[in-house]
Design a protein around this nucleic acid. Structure first.
Length: 222
DNA sequence: AATTAAGAACGTCAGAACCT
DNA sequence: AGGTTCTGACGTTCTTAATT
């Protein structure tokens, strides 16, 4: 089982490297590098140009799914993956970050829940009420619509209400999507870090091997 | 204890990527 | 082609560790 896990990790890292190499040649990894060097004087057009460059970047979902296609051992991104299930290098020690919702003291931070609580919409007058239940519940479960059925409304106010409701749903979906996107990004970065750790370890081993062979060769030559 | 700076996580917007 | 999803950018809020 341990060997199988290591093999899986190795395949994962190998495919990741192949993908990185491929995209390094195609350009976007290098092109996105100057972004960090921006300063405050940057104009709007610069921002637009930067967006154009960055937009060539494929999604994390696509990257990881492409890898999964090449190697069935690599989990597809659609399959829910917990923090613990993310492949961690067995050779190098890469510290796994604490859970997002956990503080360093080990206590769950109230920050997230307070924010979610503040997102609740109370039913005022004719307005429908939307309520967020829990951070992990599905969207359908998140939305509790409590429109007051008995009230008579003009078509224009109904229309305005519909627009507002659609906007709230869209914002809620996007909020969830952003959260998920950040999670995937963290996962992706972790994979890259693991890859670095594995390569560093391989490099170290090869250097030692070379040194040993040199020693043998020198002794024979004497 | 109060202040501050750095870092993490968030929500929203805009636009690219993807799907049907 | 139009609708949906994903993600970079931006600004805000919160946490934490260091400093006063």
């Amino acid at each position: 089982m341990v060997i199988n896990k290591q093999l899986t990790q190795y395949l994962w890292h190998t495919h990741l490297k192949l993908w990185i190499d491929q995209h390094l040649h195609s350009g976007w990894l290098l092109q996105s590098a100057p972004v960090a060097e921006m300063d405050d004087r940057e104009s709007v057009t610069d921002t637009q140009k930067r967006r154009e460059i960055l937009s060539r970047r494929p999604s994390y979902r696509k990257i990881l799914n492409e890898l999964a296609l090449d190697s069935p051992a690599v989990p597809k991104i659609d399959e829910e993956q917990t923090e613990e299930e993310v492949p961690v290098s067995s050779v190098a020690s890469v510290s796994a970050p604490a859970s997002i919702y956990q503080t360093s003291s080990g206590q769950y931070s109230g920050y997230i829940h307070e924010q979610l609580a503040s997102t609740q919409f109370t039913a005022t007058g004719d307005m429908p009420a939307y309520q967020l239940r829990s951070p992990n519940s599905s969207l359908a479960q998140n939305i509790v619509m409590a429109a007051s059925p008995g009230t008579m409304q003009s078509p224009s106010s109904q229309h305005a209400e519909e627009i507002t409701r659609k906007r709230e749903v869209r914002l809620m979906k996007n909020r969830e999507a952003a959260r998920e996107c950040r999670r995937k990004k963290k996962e992706y970065v972790k994979c890259l870090e693991n890859r670095v750790a594995v390569l560093e370890n391989q490099n170290k081993t090869l250097i030692e091997e070379l040194k040993a062979l040199k020693d043998i060769y020198c002794h024979k030559a004497e």
